[in-house]
């Protein structure tokens, strides 16, 4: 069995540095999710309006964001803001902007889908029971919408966390960058460190995303 470089992990503060890098990625996704949820709910409601202008604008926004790879969006925001507009925004800020724009689009589509999937007879039976429109929303529509939405938005969190791995490509120092630095620094003493370190990074992402996915699946089953 060749040396797989796992000892490098326990050298100095390497493990802590990796976890610190992971936290950078997770923090960016948490901030983006926190912003995406209210914005997405708003977008979703706007998307159910019959107004042709809001319909077209939201539709184009949604389609463009969803069809472009997130990395392309990151490049657009990061490079064009610094080089074209002259703003010097950090990679982290660019990441939050892109992931929020993306998360809002995804969340908006989920909200719209949940709203229009409530059958008409739910509204009708509510008004047949003489509930007012606001009571109908509060007691009938919103609880059903939320039940459909929560598992889906939890899934969005895992997708967001996985996507944050991309911020390496616009120079943000996150877990993968830290891993590269550690491997580079130990190239002489431990030439195989790449195996152990990248394996650990893979496991770290798995340990974060897997429980969240399981929770989403559990809720989806329970509330179906």
């Amino acid at each position: 069995m060749p040396d797989l470089g796992l000892d490098v992990l326990f050298k100095g503060k390497n493990m802590l540095r990796l976890l610190g890098g992971l936290w950078v990625a997770v923090r960016i996704s948490l901030i983006s999710v926190a912003l995406s949820i209210p914005l997405g709910i708003l977008l979703g409601i706007v998307m159910t309006f019959k107004n042709p202008i809001t319909k077209t604008v939201t539709r184009i926004y949604l389609e463009f964001i969803r069809i472009m790879p997130q990395l392309v969006l990151l490049f657009i925001v990061f490079f064009s803001s610094t080089r074209t507009l002259g703003w010097d925004i950090s990679g982290e800020l660019a990441s939050v902007i892109v992931f929020t724009a993306w998360g809002t689009a995804e969340m908006g589509d989920l909200v719209r889908g949940a709203l229009i999937s409530i059958p008409k007879h739910q509204y009708e039976s509510a008004s047949a029971l003489a509930l007012s429109p606001s009571q109908t929303y509060f007691y009938i529509i919103i609880p059903q919408t939320v039940r459909r939405l929560i598992p889906l938005s939890i899934n969005l969190v895992t997708r967001m966390i996985k996507t944050t791995s991309l911020i390496l490509m616009i120079g943000v120092v996150e877990v993968l960058k830290v891993a590269q630095q550690i491997i580079e620094a130990n190239r002489m003493s431990s030439p195989n460190a790449a195996f152990g370190i990248y394996l650990v990074v893979l496991i770290m992402y798995f340990m974060i995303c897997w429980p969240i996915s399981m929770l989403a699946r559990y809720l989806e089953k329970k509330w179906r």
Binding site: Y198, L202, S213
Partner: peptide, 23 residues
């Protein structure tokens, strides 16, 4: 399926490209 769906492609690629040659 669980490993594949719960890890990012970028890291899977790094693992295949940079780590697997070590073994």
């Amino acid at each position: 399926i669980e490993v594949s769906r719960n890890t990012p492609l970028l890291i899977q690629l790094f693992f295949i490209y940079y780590a697997l040659p070590k073994v």
